[in-house]
Design a protein around this nucleic acid. Structure first.
Length: 467
RNA sequence: GGUCCCAUCGUCUAACGGUUAGGACACUGGCCUCUCACGCCAGUAACAGGGGUUCGAAUCCCCUUGGGAUCACCA
């Protein structure tokens, strides 16, 4: 049994988008599942569109997703000698040839073909000329002229047959000396001994060309797995119009990386009825056989729901490093880990995103908490003045501040003033949080601690006295 | 337009010839309850259409329709 070797080969022409992330994920999962190797390769042969920042953006996104690679990153721009070697070999063996037709001539060819209703393709002008290398010559592949066909054996799509006459003599190396995508990808996959090519199904039309190249090179074919596209809500290719497509944008919105990969995995892949997967579970259960064939719509609502599940399933300790940046972005000093864990514990079940959690944590960190005018007006009334004063006294006398004891104090208070919990809870909530919506008041008090609670009760009592 | 792929609730999907077509998100109702959530229970909702094959089709075949991908010296 040979070791499985997969690769993710993005072109650095922008940030890593959702579809690319899923391709990377599937390759990574498959390699991890099979105990194979996952290779990262940067396809930067497009000199004008490739940028340094894009490479960095891809690294950042993969790092956030915790998708690590075993080999690379390899840069195609640094492998020119290798491609040139194979070009020479292909030319001497008669599989490729130099061509000096200009782009204008090619365009004219296509125009003519279109006019007569034929397929726009290279007409083979230089095919048999036996031209020598020159600065303005490209190298073209000699596509087979036999009326044969090339079949792509795809693990997710099944066998796909292409008539060879659909192919033309495509360019392998440009006049600037750079290899083209199909050629560089094949040479790399051959030399890196990639066993399994997993990529978006927008690449199926390239595959017969690549198979022909494998054959010309005398190299064994890898297994192909073309995974379906990710669509926007209008069933067209996902783009900016549909909202964020950059992976790191989801990080910044407060998604957990494990939730994001869970969502991405379930978009196109399934394991019975199971929706929730921890990372290790994904690795354990992933298989190419269970990848579906049809394109799926990216649903941010479901992504958030799954994120909420992952937030709930995590421990406060695990969430600390993920939540802290969002708190800091709000301007809070979130350096106290123990306090933060308490905060997280009370907010976990109420937050779909880390961003939401940070917003809801406002009252835990605001030094000079403002009371919502409407809430104060409605709940901080004269009738609760005495109960609040009593509460403050009782709490001040409490040796420790835990939920059980706090509850006991409230039971006594309710009895003494003949109040239902519903009548006193909201005023207390407003006093402590400034609003009418929050976690349970006992848990809040336990986290806030005696000092803050007493201060805030004081301020509420003061407020009532002034109205 | 040529070539190629795809087709189950609004969305993600299960089903691998025999099920009252299941689950999840969303939505609606109820329960729980100190607010909001969480949780629990219940409900609405799908096999694109037409032909075959078969005792029996969501499942296999063909056609139609609809959607998508791709047709570069981009990747």
């Amino acid at each position: 049994m040979t070791t499985i070797r997969t690769r993710f080969a993005p072109s650095p022409t922008g940030y890593l988008h959702v579809g690319g992330a899923r391709t990377a994920l599937f390759n990574w999962l498959y390699a991890r599942h099979t105990g194979g190797r996952f290779i990262l390769r940067i396809e930067d042969t497009d000199q004008v569109r490739s940028t340094e920042q894009s490479v960095q953006a891809i690294f950042d996104a993969l790092q956030w997703l915790e998708i690590d690679w075993d080999e690379g990153p390899f840069y195609q721009s640094q492998r020119l000698p290798i491609y040139n070697n194979y070009i020479d070999r292909l030319v001497t063996e008669g599989h490729a040839y130099y061509c000096t037709c200009t782009p204008e001539q090619i365009e004219a060819m296509r125009e003519k073909a279109r006019a007569t209703g034929a397929k726009p393709r290279y007409d083979g002008t230089c095919r048999e000329k036996g031209l020598a290398p020159s600065p303005d010559a490209v190298v073209r592949f000699k596509a087979p002229l036999d009326g044969g066909s090339t079949v792509v054996r795809d693990v997710v799509k099944g066998d796909i047959v292409f008539a060879n006459e659909e192919l033309d003599d495509f360019v392998l190396r440009r006049t600037d000396g750079m290899p083209t995508y199909n050629f560089a990808a094949v040479v790399d996959d051959v030399t890196m001994t990639i066993t399994t090519v997993i990529r978006g199904d927008d690449h199926v039309m390239n595959t017969p060309k690549q198979i022909l190249l494998y054959q010309a090179l005398g190299a064994p074919l890898p297994t192909f797995a073309h995974v379906p596209m990710v669509l926007g809500n209008d069933r067209t290719r996902l783009s900016k119009r549909h909202g964020a497509t950059s992976v790191t944008a989801y990080r910044d919105m407060g998604l957990l990386p494990d939730a994001f990969i869970n969502f991405l995995a379930r978009l196109g892949w399934s394991f019975g009825d199971q929706e929730f997967f921890k990372r290790a579970e994904l690795i354990e259960k992933f298989s190419l056989e269970r990848v579906g064939k049809s394109a799926g719509v990216f649903d941010p609502v479901k992504l958030n729901a799954l994120n909420a599940d992952h937030i709930q399933a995590a421990t406060p300790l695990q969430l600390v490093p993920h939540v802290r940046p969002f708190l800091q972005a709000q301007g809070w000093d979130a350096s106290d880990d123990a306090y933060l864990q308490g905060v997280i514990h009370t907010l976990q079940a109420r937050s779909k995103t880390l961003q939401e959690m940070a917003l809801q944590a406002h009252f835990y960190y605001a030094a000079d908490l403002a009371l919502d005018a409407q809430a104060a007006q409605k709940f901080l009334t004269a009738t609760v003045l005495e109960p609040l004063k009593y509460l403050k006294e009782q709490l001040a006398a409490l040796p420790s501040f835990n939920e059980k004891e706090l509850e006991t104090v409230f039971v006594q208070l309710m009895e003494k003033f003949q109040l239902k919990l519903g009548k006193i809870a909201q005023p207390v909530r407003v006093a402590l949080t400034g609003t009418t919506v929050s976690p349970g008041i006992f848990e809040i008090m336990a986290v806030l601690g005696k000092q803050r609670v007493l201060e805030r009760l004081d301020r509420a009592i003061e407020y009532i006295g002034k109205r």
